[in-house]
Amino acid sequence: MPPRLLPAFKPDWLAASALTERLLFVDATMLMHLSRGLTFDPLRSAEVLDNALCALDEKTGYVSQMQAWVRGGGLHNGECPTLPTGRIVVDVTEAMNAERKIIHSAAILNMEKEAGIAPVLFLSMVSPALDIGMRVEVPLRAVLLGNPPLENTYTVYLHSLLTSEGKELVYYGITKRGWNLRFNEHTRFAIAQKSRRLFARTLRDLITARADELFGVQDGKPKLRGLITTIIATGLSHAEALDVEEAMVDKYSLAAKHPNGLNMIPGGVAGLRRAASFRRKK
């Protein structure tokens, strides 16, 4: 069995609201919502992120430009502003130092080859149980002040499982409760309930093989080497989320069409119809 996972950070919405009032650019409540279920400390991360964005804005004025765009309606009023020199990637990393204290740091990267693409926030960490890299990719706009609340809206997410064979196995889904709460359910279904669904089964096999490797077992089986979760879109209505999921699954991850896809049925409304058909046949 895999090593025991550390408990997730317990959301403190009052503390997040109070912190948000002191920050210049970052909405800590948004960051807390989008990182629910992670061990990542969203309060400290929000502070570190805001400091990094303040430094970037002093040099370029770009974050203030994005903030004005968000407050003006965001995507409803056109595409997100970008820099002609490259795509801004803000990487907030959670790590443990030699004294076993958790530290957070931020780095701002300018990806020249990705100029014209909207900026993104990386939340980078190492799984304490499996000793593998993990990263959450969130549109930077989603954590800036001025967005409408995320409560009662939907998120479309992508899980990418990186394997020891160099493969990237992909799964798209939607949720209203927080993407990582749903991922934790997938993990429980995979490990404890031994679900036979393709995503859960694949996740179980990769995790178990990695855990065995940590215990010194060399069996030649594919092992989990990393996990990347990408927030494709957030703050959506149910209908909007279904449309996005259906398009993404069909284009990238439907197992019947794509060798590295882990979605067994179509996404969106088509998937709901397929699932209803399965239930009627039982």
Rank of each mutant, 00 (worst) to 15 (best):
W179R: 10
R71S: 11
A46R: 05
L56R: 01
I232A: 05
C54R: 10
K281T: 02
N152S: 12
R141H: 07
A15I: 06
T187I: 13
T60Q: 09
G37H: 04
K10P: 05
A107M: 09
G235L: 04
T202E: 08
L181S: 09
P7L: 02
P81H: 13
T234I: 09
N110M: 12
P149D: 05
N97V: 09
K251G: 01
L162W: 08
A239H: 13
S195D: 05
R87D: 02
F9V: 06
G133V: 00
K223D: 09
N110E: 11
N184L: 13
S164W: 05
M32Y: 05
F278H: 06
R22M: 03
L144V: 03
L227P: 02
D50A: 00
G86M: 05
L24F: 03
Y252Q: 06
S164D: 08
E246H: 08
P11G: 04
E245A: 04
Y252P: 00
R177F: 11
E213A: 14
G271C: 10
I191S: 00
A118L: 02
H76P: 00
N260Y: 14
A211S: 13
V92G: 03
M134E: 15
Q67L: 15
T208C: 06
H238A: 14
L242G: 02
M96C: 08
G235R: 07
R210A: 09
I265L: 15
P7R: 09
S127G: 02
L162P: 00
V70A: 12
A95D: 08
K167Y: 07
M125K: 11
T85Y: 05
L5A: 12
I174G: 01
I117H: 12
F278W: 12
